[in-house]
Design a protein around this nucleic acid. Structure first.
Lengths: 354, 354
DNA sequence: CTACGTTGAATTAACGATACGTCACCGAAG
DNA sequence: CTTCGGTGACGTATCGTTAATTCAACGTAG
């Protein structure tokens, strides 16, 4: 690898000039002819600045890390996109990490945090990062921005409460009275439940308790099963986690519940997959791309010493994408939903889950 | 941030001793008491080695990059896991990149490739990396290992041909005669088609042409639609890309085709999602975890100057996970359908995912 | 009693890039 | 003929680590 020294020799100038050409420094001036001579030499030698040396000298790396809870959750696609694009704007490279990589003793965390490998960190842990990790995160000098509500740290988030409200109100408007919320754990689903509660309240309906079964497909299936065991079976369901919606559909199929005829389903977070399920799932699209972009901007504010620009992203608002999994309830139709408890248990036994 | 110099001053020793303590160098010897004194000083000051300085000095970073075609494709979950674990074994950190980040002009590629940000690169582009990117990849000095078949570079891959063969033979054993292959583009699906072809040939059946519709849910839907337009409609289908299977299910639903009663479906690559679809999808599980692990090992061979250890991963073999999307065809007619009996096949039954 | 090996540690030269301070040169103004 | 300001470029300290080299002190063997 050619170094600046090599380039300098080849161009017949000093190191300083090469550096100035590379960085466009105004401090060191030079003739245009000198500049092109250096440029040519750089090209001929295939010169590439050494990242380590640069980082050492400048005490910044041009890299930021983003740590996500489940990297292959499709809701993160647009988030990543937003982060990448905003980072590119700052000339930065993004180092992606999965929270599962961050178990104690992992090189990843330590290296990131304390060794100055990155200039700052974005974290979206979905409330699942354990206290050890959070403590380690906060014990180090580099700026951290949390991409969800955080009590005493800079944060920025999407409006999860509003999403829960939108999903619920949509079902209320479809004349559903017995709407249940299948949630996960942590602050995020708590917020969505709050929105659900609010929509129910303002419609004069009694909110059902938060069925917190966790994340992912299995959680959705469990949630639906629990919901159907209530005294009055729900006619509609708001699913906190979008991947849980897949589980809700599967469990409904297994229990012989037709969607949307017997049960309407609305998910929170919209992903491509939803339009390819049958029935295609009605979902609330969240501004994840904007979250990513805004997150990077806020992080760079932090890096620059400015603080502040955080809070909820309100533009665009969460947006309902109507597909086929929710339908209007005929006000007279509540009675002709057949769901005898005995047959339900039989069905459950027929298909034990792994 | 405390430096080695600070530690040295605090412990009353020289820089060299601190460095020796940090690295456990045998070259510089010291009294045990000195060692502990240095260790205590390090703790008190919260010393953390500076990554940039270290990289500069050693000319290696302890980071490797892995570039994947679609980061949120769930088939990559186990791959990442394998890579992370093997990398941890080498004390390395993994920098994850999506191929979409690598469009021309991206900081990511350049920084990675030429500026010595990483010690080596793993790439799985699913044949979708364009020539520019590949050219740029190969024009730089750091070792690259391709996680798929590559003509003139170190590579390591899973046995895609065998996967196509296993999927097809399973359907042949279920007495299907009209089996069609819905594929994607590129070498990987080509290999799977070859396996399909081989299984068809050895069963004395005529292979259908490769329906290459691409990747993802939509591709599956398109593929099925094309397949159903043939003179004789297929009774079974092998789906190249696992996410395409979702689209196949959706399209079948839309076309009023019952799965598995009217059409049997087997996917290649098994992911959690498959067991949560209805019907749950029978799929060939590929050793992605092993691919990741072996990839890192081979990459470190390359870094160490050793070359060789590449080729197909044959242990474990691709393995069929039987679920509900494929059923036996009665030779007397499509009306008498029988669920697959264990005696009918030599394949294994579904096992829980690790 | 001296030469020598061993132990325990200090000095110091890179690694590559950056930016501050310096300086030679030249034309023009005083 | 100086002095001055501007231009164009050079030297070099510095970032934090590592490892080769050097070195002082101390036993011990001859």
């Amino acid at each position: 690898m050619a170094t600046q020294r090599d380039v300098a020799r080849a161009a017949g100038v000093s190191l300083a000039v090469v550096s100035a050409v590379v960085n466009g420094t105004s401090h060191t001036r030079m003739r245009e002819s000198t500049r092109t001579r250096v440029l040519r030499a750089m090209q001929q030698l295939g010169y590439q600045p050494n990242h380590a040396a640069r980082s050492l000298r400048l005490n910044q790396t041009g890299m930021i890390a983003m740590i996500l809870n489940k990297l292959d959750n499709p809701v993160y696609g647009p988030l990543r996109q937003g982060v990448y694009e905003a980072a590119a704007e700052h000339g930065a490279t993004v180092l992606l990490g999965d929270a599962e990589t961050m178990r104690s003793g992992s090189q990843f965390l330590t290296r990131l945090l304390s060794q100055g490998t990155v200039d700052g960190i974005l974290v979206r842990g979905e409330g699942l990062l354990d206290d050890d990790v959070m403590a380690e995160l906060h014990s180090h000098p580099k700026p951290i921005l949390i991409l969800e509500h955080a009590p005493d740290h800079p944060w920025i988030d999407i409006d999860d409460r509003r999403a829960g409200e939108i999903a619920t109100r949509f079902l209320v408007n479809l004349r559903h009275r017995h709407i249940v919320f299948v949630g996960g754990s942590g602050y995020i689903s708590q917020q969505r439940y709050l929105g659900y509660q609010q929509a129910m309240d303002s419609a004069g309906l009694a909110p059902a308790p938060h069925l917190a079964t966790g994340f992912g497909e299995q959680a959705g299936a469990d949630g639906l099963r629990q919901a159907m065991q209530a005294a009055t079976a729900p006619t509609a369901i708001v699913v906190n986690n979008i991947m849980s919606a897949v589980g809700v559909l599967a469990a409904a199929h297994d229990l012989g519940i037709a969607i949307p005829d017997q049960l309407s389903v609305v998910g929170i977070h919209d992903v491509d997959l939803m339009q390819h399920l049958r029935p295609a799932v009605t979902a609330v699209r969240m501004p994840m791309y904007q979250l990513g972009w805004a997150g990077v901007e806020a992080l760079y504010d932090l890096i620059a010493g400015r603080s502040g620009t955080g809070g909820l992203i309100t533009d665009p608002e969460p947006e309902l994408v109507i597909r086929d999994s929710a339908t209007a309830l005929n006000p007279a139709g509540a009675e002709n939903l057949v769901r005898p408890a005995t047959s339900l248990t039989t069905e459950i036994r027929a298909r034990p889950q792994p």
